[in-house]
Simulated assay, not measured.
Amino acid sequence: MWSLFIFSLMMLTGCYLLSDLDPEFSREKYEKWYENEQYELALEDVKQRLEKFPEDPMLHNEKGYVLHVLGRYEEALQSLNKAIELDNLMDSALNNKAMSLNKLGEYEQAIVAAQQAIDISDKEPEQFINMGNAHFLLERYEKALEYYNHALAIDDHAPYALYGKGVSLYFLYEDEKAVPYLEHYIKVYPDDIDGLWYLVYVHEALGEYSDTLPYLNKIIEFEEEHQLNALDYKGFMLTYAGHFKEAEEIYNYIIEQYPNEGIGYYGKSVALVQQGEIDQGLEELARAIELIDTLKDTAFNDPLLSTIYDNETFIELTGY
Rank of each mutant, 00 (worst) to 15 (best):
I219S: 11
K82Q: 12
A93K: 11
E261S: 01
R72E: 15
L172D: 00
E224F: 06
D192P: 07
F5K: 04
G166V: 09
R140V: 01
N81L: 11
F171Y: 15
E204R: 12
A288W: 02
T239F: 02
V167C: 06
L77D: 03
D22T: 05
E183T: 08
A247G: 07
N301S: 11
D119F: 06
L238K: 00
E139A: 13
P259S: 04
T318W: 05
Q78A: 11
I250G: 01
T294E: 13
D192C: 10
F300Y: 12
K245F: 13
D122K: 08
D302A: 07
Y141Q: 09
K177H: 10
L317V: 00
D175K: 07
I315L: 06
P57V: 02
S8C: 10
A117N: 05
A83C: 06
L12V: 15
L182F: 03
L304Y: 00
E312A: 14
E176R: 09
H150Y: 14
I186W: 13
E40T: 14
V273W: 05
L305V: 04
Y251I: 09
E284Y: 15
N133K: 07
L285S: 05
D191S: 11
S3Q: 14
E223P: 00
D119P: 02
D119V: 04
T239Y: 04
F300W: 15
E126W: 10
K296Q: 05
D155I: 14
C15L: 07
S8Y: 06
I315H: 12
K52T: 12
A299Q: 06
Y16W: 13
F5M: 08
L228V: 00
I254V: 12
R287E: 11
D293E: 12
E62F: 14
D310A: 05
Y309I: 06
E28Y: 09
E37L: 15
K177G: 10
A161V: 09
T239A: 04
F5P: 01
N149V: 10
Y320M: 07
S269G: 03
E108M: 06
I220G: 05
V46P: 03
I6G: 05
L77G: 04
G207I: 09
H68V: 14
Y147W: 11
